[in-house]
Amino acid sequence: MLSGAGVIFALVMVLLVLPYRAQNGPKGETRQIRVWIVGLGLAFPMTVLAALLGYGLFVGEQLLPRDLPDVVRVGAEGRQWAWTFTYEDAPGTTTQDVLHIPAGRPVDVAITTADVIHSFWVPRLAGKLDAVPGRANILRIEADAPGVYQGLSAEFSGAGYDRFTFSVTAHDAAGWQAFLRGDER
């Protein structure tokens, strides 16, 4: 996308510089309209945008949560300024500001809020999704490898916004079972 944008930008710049250099012979207005407006103004962006839109929708569909057998379900509730995480596989267990997930398995995070609008974002695992009062938004995330991933709230929420971060710990299979049993806490 960036290189495409760079090419288009360079093209426009060249088109801007050329009239200062070249001596243009007079041409018919109709022909100029056909070249500039119909060709470059209408047809060119339509083609590029249609391709881009199709690509975006395709990728967007891929990212949607789908029903898979091994989906892990967790809950994330934001409040000013802390996240509380709950686990379907370990009822009663809650963690504060650290979300535990198994690596290599899809995880559905049900995002809710106790007060104002927040946004749940773990840049390396998925895009962001808002926590809107009265609603539970489901975000599918998946960590390829065990490790710690930084997460943050990405919707302005008042005075404590800058410190409003959390982390995601992705366990291997054994670590996940240990977490569910409560060994680690």
Binding site: I37, L42, P45
Partner: peptide, 30 residues
């Protein structure tokens, strides 16, 4: 998807104006 399409579509009339201006530059003596 609908609003994404509309958002990309809005670049078209903007493009027409931009190229009309560049075309004016080619037509005249800037």
């Amino acid at each position: 998807a609908f609003f994404s399409a509309a958002s990309t579509l809005v670049a078209v009339p903007t493009g027409i104006q931009i190229f009309a201006w560049i075309g004016t530059m080619w037509k005249g003596k800037p």
